[in-house]
Design a protein around this nucleic acid. Sequence first.
DNA 1: ATGGGAAATGCAAGCGCTTACATTCGAGAA
DNA 2: TTCTCGAATGTAAGCGCTTGCATTTCCCAT
Lengths: 340, 340
Amino acid sequence: MGKSRTAPTLNDVAKEAGVSTATVSRCLNSPARVVEETRKRVLSAVDKLGYTPNMAARTMAANRSYSIGAIIPTMDNAIFARGLQAFQDHLREKGYSLLVASSAYHPDVEKDQIRTLVARGVDGLLLIGHAREDEIYDYLEQHQVPALVAWSYLPEARQPSVGFNNRGAMCDLARSVLAAGHRRIGLISGVTQGNDRALSRVDGARDALAEAGMEPQALTVIETPYGIDNGAQAFAELMRREPRPTAVMCGNDVLAVGALREATRVGISVPGEISITGFDDIELADIITPSLTTVHVPHREMGQKAASELIDMVEGRSAGRSTCIRTHIVSRASLAFSKT
Amino acid sequence: MGKSRTAPTLNDVAKEAGVSTATVSRCLNSPARVVEETRKRVLSAVDKLGYTPNMAARTMAANRSYSIGAIIPTMDNAIFARGLQAFQDHLREKGYSLLVASSAYHPDVEKDQIRTLVARGVDGLLLIGHAREDEIYDYLEQHQVPALVAWSYLPEARQPSVGFNNRGAMCDLARSVLAAGHRRIGLISGVTQGNDRALSRVDGARDALAEAGMEPQALTVIETPYGIDNGAQAFAELMRREPRPTAVMCGNDVLAVGALREATRVGISVPGEISITGFDDIELADIITPSLTTVHVPHREMGQKAASELIDMVEGRSAGRSTCIRTHIVSRASLAFSKT
DNA sequence: ATGGGAAATGCAAGCGCTTACATTCGAGAA
DNA sequence: TTCTCGAATGTAAGCGCTTGCATTTCCCAT
């Protein structure tokens, strides 16, 4: 309503309502401490003036920003985008805002972003995966910024995590592949350097082979950054290997889609000649032809749980509990019995 | 390095370097105003103490936060995620952080988010589409927060925009459909209420029909929220209409994928019996079978341009220039000549 | 009536930084 | 040598809010 050039402050509201700024502040933050009549007066003044608290000032005075930072490798990938969306929805419900940064899978960038977000006074931080210099965790501790790891579940790690068992899930999937009679398996992994999730998935596949009494060489691993084209290229390379694998497992669905595309391009039938598996179960997995056998990860649930746990930590209700989100294998067309 | 319980402040640095806080501040913000020798001393003190400026304090004192807010309908959709990624990359390069909120296509939620972000002191705001109460623009003006609209280009609108011509692009695409001999066309649109992009796309399709001298009834429009399942459902409904359309244009690729899936499910051949088109050219469009004829939108370019324009506005270098991003039609398998 | 004590409110000191203005310094001009 | 003036630095007043502590108010037991 006001035609004032500058936004109303707590002081303006206080004057308007005929109380002190302290009372107005209390009205807004712990209404119970203010008697009803006063509260009404204050709130109507707030309304009349169209007052909105200045968060920077509040942050400074209370040393609390009601904002949470999240650093994810990339938003390009539907996986993170979806989880992040759920995370932010829940945050918002609880009155927190989300500061997002993305590291492009670059440890140095991530480190920098962490400093930036901490300097911005975030109350808590969501990080993807555990692999990270100890120094960073020290820094976070020193600054008393609670951090929660997601997309990975490692209860014994220094940081609490809300995620899933990448290794176990991949092992289960590999068991299915083995059960389908495949004995020469290719694995297109994401870059494992600084990415514990990618690494765990590789380990999981190895576990299954070992368990079946097979030699490690039965598994040919290629590492490549996540991306459709990279998946396609890696697949092409695997096809040149002798002996050719009869099944290609992929570190995530994006790589798998690339592999599938390449197979189609060069006329290799899937799953006729070669079986392919993915990981994550993004929408794409069910849409593509042939549909992808993959590991379903409940990203929304994870984002939601991560938000609520992180808020509990921030508000001192928890010292950091780890939660394991259950995944399951989704069997679709791309995996079939080995013909050999 | 310090084992102090609390982070070092400007004051600590000043003491360490034997100068006043003003000098330290100047060192950090306008180094040229400080003589070299002093600067060196200060910077090494900064280093030694591991000082990081407190952004809340800075925001408060300078009335400048070096953060930009973005409110997008959803991150679930790959389109926004990708554009947003580019946006934030560029922001970061220029020293800005990104505050993200999503409105779930809900005007009220969006309004609320705008207030929240303004209260948080963002220096500028990125909004998707123009359709919005005037009151909101007044509010933004009153608070002197520059806002830029993206995903839509409307040079004559109140707010500057960096986007593309939704109407023109859809019109072009519809021309191709007509050129392929289709005369009964179905259109699965996103919800147009409060979504100028969706509405423009419908208008664009109508333009092409009118241009070809066809009656408006030749176009059957169904509105549904974006989503694969919704696209499938809408497609099913279109198939029940008499006379059945020979081509179904979709408001975006996600809807188109749904339509395609439904066609496959009920055994309607695409493009044999029915042609389908999308909009956006997400990765999916090229992966799916049959591949989707669609409008290619350079999202990364748009995000990038939006960031640089918005920063220009924030830093007073521009009063808000609008930029039109060029789109083009990508012809793939899903559109073919009408057999009838 | 009155004293006591809890509840409600006010007072004012910061939070860490920027910046207008004041002061100091040094070098060249007179 | 003294004066002038611009450059370098210091001083200190906020920015808008929260919160510990002081003060006032009000209700009830006595």
